[in-house]
Design a protein around this nucleic acid. Structure first.
Lengths: 372, 372
DNA sequence: ACCTCAGCTGTAAGCGCTTACTCGTCGAAG
DNA sequence: CTTCGACGAGTAAGCGCTTACAGCTGAGGT
């Protein structure tokens, strides 16, 4: 341990070079694992570097190598509509987004990348600017659903490689999403054929979410094709939040509407809200009304009743997103499977039948929420 | 909208300068809001920049200005011990850490900073290296509790300004934490004097967490000073996780030990586990045994019974951490309140009396978890 | 003993941007 | 009408690193 008069400025590669008695090129080579330097040189450099506590400057490295080894991740901060306190902390719950980020991070680390995260409030005025700033600080961006309009997406894509999650893609924007149509059709079949429900409804998510559109249409089409009725429309327009689900059910009930026998929700959170509102009015699920979600977030199987839902490989989505982005970064732009358009990856989903649709409970799922 | 033959390389400040017919210096000045350039020049630059879709390169900017406008945030990824599935997804719940990050982010954005986040697994071999890499990519670091040893902390602090959360500080490492001693003493008084419990226990968190040590000692000392008994020691050594809480209670019960009348836990998560294990054995809380937590995470008031706990201003901790770090970055190192040692900020906490200690329930706290 | 070639190491040219310093220019004061 | 000052704009010097290319050294071939 030596202690040089602790310069006010951190040591640079020059300091290391001087101390080791070599050129900065050699230092760089050693530190980057090139095999040119011979052992003796390598050792001296390593020693000097350690003694100085040298840490290469990321900015300089990035500028020189044209690679920052940083990917930007932008997701929407959820400010749930405050429903009198019940779901006021919904924004604080771990949702979809955080899990995807975890997936991204895990793979990113394997490639030596770090995440520059940025949660935005959708109605921010300066949003485009902020995203551009982020873009300047990383090699590529992964944008969650609902953070930018297709036009905005295209604009960003002109600046850096972009992967959009479950959002609108096209142009140079790659997309990673999960299958929605088949599983929603399967859900409709399950509800209509297996349980015999004839009157269904679909509570939509954000109207401009491609995923939501597909889910709603597939579900409704299949249900109707099987001779069942499926309510949709403005009265069933949610916003992916639990509060939204509560709103809709309360509204319908207060209007004296006859609720359908089964309600399929655009996502688990909405289903959570629906479950709450239904319980509030003494309605039994699935006895009186069946409810289903989409996502299969961890809490889905801890609810009472356990939520029937469609499982998305959430972390896998993040992982895939990074893989795609990484290939775009290294190969230069669009990175596609084989064609020359941007990639569009669709991950498989699976219908998870639990109690809320009317199926028997799974005794193998313990839960403290069922006990306390 | 024009579309130049889309160069394979993004436009630089030179391209903008050429297009606007000015020097790069002027472009830089305009883009950085200096007021020198006169309106006419400014407009031409802005126009050219917009047409080209120019976004300044963060690395170059950082290298030149010596400021990256990025702060690194490192926190521990929780891989809860798998308790047979019940708490297997504990790691996936939004906990303490995420909320702090939110707080950091909010303030950081105000200063034009972005977050480079990195969740680490504590037993990672390459941890020090990875943190050093992160350090090279940002202007300063905020390290959550339990990610680095004091020695490791000191090492990183030699490379960049560091703020440690609720962890060990000292040297050049600033610390932001919340008050623990007073509130734990108050809790002890409440349990002993208000409720009349004579046999208490404290389930500890990680033994090397300064916060944990203070909490435990304060609680035990006060309880004993009031003539009550307070169990501590190896049998009560938890690890801040729900699974840990379950473990301890189960162990004690299976050993046929007589449980104390009240159990104070190092944090809410541990309390959650304790509640679970107690319910598992048909014990009533607070009827048979009172249980308290620390943190006041959102779920605390949704439990049945509602959890009595000590509220930490979680987001505020993050916000303060950024403020401190920011001043360290701008003023150069240690940034302290007045002295010349690194800052040590202590935020106030508050005892929240709810049901689990024996107090009457608060009817004003609605909760879907209490309904479903 | 000389030449060749291979393998290290050093030299230097940027990477894209900020900014001190210099140079013009134009308006106002003398 | 000359001189000075203020201010806008250009020039160029880095910021700390990577890397192509040049230079040097010694081993092996003839």
């Amino acid at each position: 341990m030596d202690s040089h008069p602790k310069a006010d400025t951190p040591p640079t590669i020059y300091d290391v070079a001087r101390r080791a008695g070599v050129s900065i090129a050699s230092v760089s080579r050693v530190l980057n694992g090139r095999d040119n330097p011979r052992p003796a040189t390598r050792d001296r450099v390593l020693k000097a570097s350690a003694e100085l506590g040298f840490v290469p400057d990321g900015a300089a490295r990035a500028l020189s190598s044209r690679l920052k080894h940083v990917v930007g991740v932008v997701f929407r901060r959820v400010y749930g509509t405050d429903d009198g306190g019940t779901f006021a902390d919904e924004a604080e719950s771990l949702l979809f987004g955080d899990q995807i980020n975890r997936g991204i991070e895990i793979v990113a680390q394997r490639y030596g990348y770090d995440l520059l995260v940025c949660s935005v409030n959708i109605d921010e005025r300066t949003l485009p600017n902020r995203i551009m700033t982020i873009a300047g600080k990383c090699d590529g961006l992964i944008l969650h659903d609902q953070v930018l309009s297709p036009a905005g997406l295209a604009a960003v894509a002109r600046v850096a490689p972009v992967v959009s999650l479950a959002g609108a893609g096209g142009g140079d924007v790659a997309v990673v999403r999960s299958e929605s149509a088949d599983s929603m059709r399967e859900l409709a079949r399950h509800l209509v054929q297996d349980h015999g429900y004839r009157r269904l409804a679909y509570i939509a998510g954000h109207a401009d979410s491609p995923d939501n559109v597909v889910r709603g249409r597939s579900f409704a089409d299949e249900a109707r094709a099987l001779g069942a009725e499926c309510l949709t429309g403005p009265a069933w327009q949610g916003d992916y939040s639990a509060a939204g689900g509560v709103e809709i059910v309360r509204g319908l009930i207060s209007l004296g509407a006859t609720l359908p026998r089964a309600i399929a929700c655009a996502n688990d959170q909405t289903a959570l809200g629906v479950l709450y509102a239904l319980a509030e009015h003494g309605l039994d699920v699935p006895g009186d009304i069946a409810v289903t979600g989409f996502d299969d977030l961890p809490f889905a199987r801890h609810l009472r009743p356990q939520l029937t839902t469609v499982r998305q490989p959430i972390q896998e989505i993040g992982a895939q997103a990074f893989e795609v982005l990484h290939s775009m970064i290294t190969t230069g732009q669009p990175a596609s499977t084989t064609t020359e358009a941007a990639a569009d990856i669709v991950l498989p989903t699976r219908l998870i039948r639990r109690e809320s649709c009317g199926c028997p409970p799974d005794p193998a799922t313990p839960s403290w929420r069922r006990l306390v």
